[in-house]
Nucleic acid binder design. Structure first.
Lengths: 242, 242
DNA sequence: GTTACTTATCGTCATATTGACAATAAATAA
DNA sequence: TTATTTATTGTCAATATGACGATAAGTAAC
């Protein structure tokens, strides 16, 4: 690619992770409290520098692991987009590749005193302006939210917020939290169970809860293989926001 | 974001552009013939190094201009995604931020002998294996194609392939070329003209062509403002692939 | 045990959208 | 004037959606 004349500038490259989950029927995002120089004490997305020879997705997973203590990537991780370099880090031109993690509510390591403390925060607090984020992380979060919302429309990725098995109501709660709307339980049930290649009935049901036991479903195999960036829609027709 | 221990590696960063257009009812991609070291003589996506202090989108537009001679960005440019660093460039770890351009059929500069020669190539030739691309550019192209296909479903971006004014048939030809399918002209007409905030009738028509003159439309103002990455769907309900 | 309550699931119906295809409109070509 | 071509308007059945009634199957209260 180089012509020859422009000096191939080199940039520090970081990966950031917008980790989303649903806790208490509300969408939450994982944030760390910065302990060092720029924006010290402020909240920020977890992330860090990409190491030489390291894959972007790997780096994102590693940073997530370092700052939360999770062993395996606990949900669906995908690339969101790249930001910068200019004007986003007071230390200079830093390019960041943001990632999106959709995961079940996993516990974050209660870090020791000198590690950056990670915790879940309701997204609504950021939207309301109650929480300020460092760098351009608020913008990245906004892009992540829009991505997550639209992903739920055309892909089976809502299930990434649930465990391996889940009820239709739990799946609906995910849609309601991410979209910040209420959905009719009966119509949602019809749509979710009626969409081909989406859910399979495990035959088992919940027990002990109040109300009628709910059937437990899992993602269909066809929906599980939605790996790379360029996976074809599975939800057809899509499940659109009201 | 840095802990302190891992040395913040710096990477050369390039931008690549997957420029797509419709020529003779077929989807084409802009490729350059490499004149230098790695993959010399092979076809590749236009692109080049990001300069210090330069914005990614700006860099993509600049590289496109340098290699085709276009003055202004001739269509819709958006970020596609980032690739690498490891294992994609024999010269070392290079991170590339791929971009997607959807544009009308614009003429490329017939470059002099020592400049990299850019030209349109039917995408089908790449898909058929008749053309081999340098680096991981084939994979990037595949991702771009899937992105373009899905963009046409829920955004008004098909119009980016047309000029300022266009007929319904021209718009349909875009969908047919990108999706590689045939669409019923009558149903398409109904859908395109019936979708709110999509098209506005200019009142004028084509002249001189064979057959009945067609009404000329332009993009509605609401659809024009679909700028950033996170623009909300305009086509609602979407126009899905068959 | 019954009865009340709660959540899950099935059913109904009007409306909107889609796909298939007939018919008409308005130009050019013969 | 007639044939040909492309554009545009309709029709109709099948499908999907939104609103909401009714039933099922548990737990909680008495």
């Amino acid at each position: 690619m180089p012509k020859s004349y422009p000096a191939p500038a080199r940039f520090p490259v970081t990966v950031d992770v917008v980790a989303l989950t649903v806790r208490d029927d509300a969408l939450n995002v994982l944030l760390i409290t910065r302990l060092i120089k720029p924006f010290r004490g402020a909240l920020a997305l977890p992330g860090g520098f990409v190491l030489a020879g390291e894959d972007l997705m790997t780096a994102a997973g590693r940073e997530l692991a370092e700052e939360t203590g999770v062993e395996q990537i606990p949900g669906h991780l995908e690339q969101l987009g790249s930001y910068g370099p200019p004007g986003r880090d007071p230390r200079g031109d830093v390019l960041t590749v943001a990632h999106l993690l959709l995961a079940p509510n996993f516990p974050v390591l209660s870090a020791g005193s000198d590690a950056e403390h990670a915790a879940w925060y309701p997204v609504s607090q950021v939207l309301d302006g109650d929480l300020k984020l460092a760098f351009d992380h608020e913008r990245i979060l906004m892009d992540a939210l829009e991505r997550a919302k639209s992903k739920l429309e055309y892909s089976p990725l809502a299930a990434a917020f649930c465990g391996d098995e889940f009820t239709i109501a739990q799946l609906r709660a995910v849609y309601e939290a991410v979209w910040d709307t209420r959905l009719d339980p009966r119509n949602f049930h019809r749509k979710a169970t009626g969409t081909p290649d989406f859910l399979v009935d495990t035959g088992r049901t919940t027990v002990g809860d109040t109300g009628r036991p709910a059937a437990l479903y899992r993602l269909a195999e066809a929906a599980r293989s939605s790996t790379g960036q360029s996976s074809r829609t599975v939800l057809n027709p899509p499940l659109m926001r009201p």
